[in-house]
Design a protein around this nucleic acid. Structure first.
Lengths: 346, 346
DNA sequence: TTGTATGCGTTATCAT
DNA sequence: ATGATAACGCATACAA
């Protein structure tokens, strides 16, 4: 059976013997409208009978609402390939967005070439609001959106803007992670970033590392810093490079569990052991981290919660509710497992 | 600066001193239309000047194309939390979809309660086509869509339908995985599924396991079968249960690397070693699998490629191109690493 | 309580 | 080569 012509509200109106207005009033449950119960039922029955579903485009055109939320990711597609943080965000986002009858559109923008490309998505009114994960310092589109007061919630933070944000305190969390290693007696602590430093979170985490060292009277040694890029591969490569350098370290703070996974393998392949030879602290507390060997001590980022709160906030914004708590900060405690071992004896 | 009224094609027309028709003709690069070069330039300049972006809803309404592709996932949000396969799909999908000027909408439908809910998305013309990952036997919506000839590409397969599909041969791949273990001398081989058996891939993989056993003159022992549910946790729990049962096994085929990650940890926590006490073969070859300890031998599923081909195919379908190769099957070779050890001596 | 008329911003069909 | 004008399907102010 081929699908006949689309069924429109006119068809429903005809079938129920009323006007399109009445159909609209009934189906949208408009408050003020007084419809006789009997008519209401007839309309509903006709709509169900005909399998009527309002046309999204027509509705969007007239209501000026697409009923779609955009999740903007500023990276290359290949950088999401092994992103265990993203799937957690999707869990949280999809749950609440669906609950509200909205939908989620994923937009990925290459920060190298077209980092402001998502503005077009907004200009075209394709989406009603944006959740942006992993803001970068060089994102001028975000500043533009602030001027226009377009509904945006950041998963992360961007200095010098006043966007709504839901995040953890990356800097403090990193300090705590590194202080844990310091507390165990480590003096030579390497660091591998979670991403390149144009991402605000990457910079903040690196600063936290530095602050912890300085607070302990140590200073940052560039030779002990490696750079990750979201993936285990990047962690593997960075750790291999660190191990190949002429510097000694007994511990490493790796600002992403995904990256830590690769780093740990590199350590293993060099014939060294975690935590005996090198103690490890990660960041994110991904589902997989508890299953690493040894289980990874890491900063526990409540990713699903962050996503839930961000989307809940955005939805309120879309409804016109004003919020005065612009920056929500969730707790991110250290989750101690076995990758750090015991206190050093010497 | 607050945003003024949206700029419409009328504004551009006025600014360029032409009609809306001309603006549309120029901006959409309509082939047949003969526009004087001078006029063309003036229109383009005006559009750029005013920052004109066509309204998505208006365009969708008249063109009957939303320019959006839907990715349908039939599971609960919490089942995507640690799905390393999904991120690979996103990599492939986002890359080619963006290339074509389309967008990706993610729809998740709880198979328990509303497994046909995504039909509404289609009826509302919210999306132009569907990519469905992980079809289930009980998905009646898919059968309906087939009757309507709505553009659908399956990442996976659904028997008794003729939907376009891009997939691997799950059954044969599983046989190969298990035959690898048999070839190493293992006789008692456990199995943990990747998901519950309503997912066609899960059933196929289990059948492959069974076929391999039977071909080797062994028979399936229900006591040796556990059930996973996408996550490492489920693999951990399933393996713990198997180890607690009164059955012996020297190897296990785990039909998902994500699940295998948890299973491997369970083995370790029971004081056993991989591969010495239990050899392991996984399925998927996720980016993380190479970094497990020991690196996991697994079936290499070209997830990014599957996604690329599926979306490329769907886009062709949307353009009206007909394809006669309805079922694309990609290779999924066994990737041997260290989780199986050497041939058993006894 | 229900119907009529109008507008949303585009594209497409005709004229000119 | 360009411009009027009519859909597209819905929601809503206003009439009845």
């Amino acid at each position: 059976m081929m699908n006949a012509r689309r069924v429109t509200s006119q068809d429903v109106a005809d079938a129920a013997g009323v006007s399109r207005t009445t159909v609209s009033l009934v189906l949208n449950k408009v408050q003020g409208a007084k419809i006789r119960e009997e008519t209401r039922q007839r309309v509903i029955a006709a709509a169900r009978e005909l399998g009527y579903v309002p046309d999204a485009a027509a509705r969007a055109l007239v209501s000026r609402r697409a009923q779609i939320i955009g999740l903007v990711l500023t990276r290359r597609p290949d950088q999401v390939t092994s992103d265990g943080f993203l799937t957690q965000l999707l869990d949280g986002l999809l749950g609440v967005i669906k609950q509200s009858g909205l939908r989620l559109l994923i937009e990925i923008v290459d920060p190298e070439h077209q980092k402001e490309a998502y503005l077009e998505l907004i200009r075209a009114k394709h989406i009603d609001g944006v959740i942006l994960s992993g803001p970068r310092y060089d994102d001028d589109a975000l500043r533009t959106l602030e001027e226009e007061a377009f509904p945006v919630v950041l998963l992360g933070q961007l200095p010098d803007t006043n966007h709504y944000s839901v995040d953890i305190n990356n800097r403090v969390a990193s300090r705590i992670a590194v202080e844990h290693l310091l507390g165990l007696g480590h003096k030579e602590i390497a660091c591998i970033t979670n991403a390149d430093l144009s991402y605000t979170a990457a910079t903040e985490r690196l600063i936290g590392y530095q602050e912890a060292l300085e607070a302990a009277g140590l200073s940052l040694n560039d030779e002990l810093v490696g750079y990750g890029d979201f993936s285990p591969e990047s962690g593997y490569a960075a750790m291999m490079e660190l191990l190949g350098r002429d510097v000694r370290f007994t511990a490493a703070f790796i600002a992403s569990d995904e990256v830590a996974l690769g780093a740990q393998a590199a350590i293993r392949e060099c014939g060294l052991r975690v935590p005996d030879d090198i103690a490890l602290v990660g960041f994110d507390d991904l589902p997989l981290s508890r299953y690493m060997d040894p289980p990874l001590t890491t900063i526990s980022v409540p990713a699903v919660q962050l996503a839930r709160q961000a989307s809940t906030l955005l939805i309120k914004l879309l409804k016109g509710e004003k919020f005065y708590e612009r920056h929500v900060v969730l707790k991110s405690p250290l989750h101690v497992r076995e990758s750090c071992g015991a206190k050093l004896s010497n």
